[in-house]
Computed example of a mutant assay.
Amino acid sequence: MTENIHPFYEAHRGAMEAAMRHRLDLAEPRLRECTRLPDTDQIKREVMEEFAIVLAQTPYVGGSASRMSDFFIRLIGFIAISRVLRRHGVPVPLIGEIERDAYKAQLLTESETERLAAGRHFLSPENQAFLREQAEMSHREEFPDDFVYDFIEPGPGDSFEFGINYKACGFCKFAARYGDKEILPNICGLDFDAYATRGIRLERTQTLADGAEHCNFRFFHLASK
């Protein structure tokens, strides 16, 4: 029996399920090519069933008042994909490749104009001010399963626009609670394409998932080709 889904995620459930189905459709060629699984339709059904479980497990971290809620909405479904494929014996690194390819393809269905506009907004002074406020709020630790992070200003000689150091990660806490630590790096790998498709280069040399003290995100304008 699945636990109840938090009302915040229930309100977004239809859109989240639609995004999951789209993602699985985009992943299907790689599933057939790389996994040799006999019935990808069955795999899709299993993933959607697992997604219902994952959705009920997803922690509430402040809803629309917290930017991190959107991270859970967009990415938590990859936990369901990873769980199902791992049960079918697909190696974790290959699962990561399949997920990253599907996610990038999904991101690219949005027009380049919209994606680059979103990237400019992310790097804008207005959004940086918002991120500073959100970072300060995160240290209140109102929600125990939330992220905790610092906004990093560039210093003399730095070429990045700004940075974020994540001191605590909601996905790491989720993975530790539900036994998903092995597949957690696959979630981390999605970040690079998420920013690159919006015209932003992400540099990151360490993550909490790999045992570091913090994740060091640094954001740059992506050079035009």
Rank of each mutant, 00 (worst) to 15 (best):
L37E: 03
D39M: 06
L116S: 06
R132D: 03
A194L: 09
V148N: 05
V90N: 06
E110Y: 09
R218F: 06
A65S: 14
M20V: 04
A209Y: 00
R13D: 04
I200M: 02
A194W: 02
A212K: 11
R67Q: 10
I81N: 08
A196N: 08
E99D: 13
M68F: 13
C188K: 07
F217G: 01
V148G: 05
R13A: 14
E153C: 03
N165P: 00
R30T: 03
A194I: 00
G14F: 05
Q42E: 12
L24P: 04
F147L: 10
E33D: 14
L26Q: 08
I95P: 01
E142I: 12
Q128I: 12
I79M: 11
R140H: 13
D193N: 06
H12V: 01
L123P: 02
D146C: 10
L184A: 11
G179R: 11
Y195V: 06
C169A: 05
K225I: 07
H6L: 05
D41K: 14
R45Q: 14
S82C: 14
M137S: 11
A56V: 04
I183W: 00
C188I: 09
I187F: 05
G96P: 03
E3R: 11
F151W: 07
H214C: 14
G77Q: 13
N165M: 03
D70R: 14
E161M: 07
V84Q: 02
S69Y: 00
A129F: 04
G96C: 13
K167R: 15
D146M: 09
R87P: 02
R86D: 04
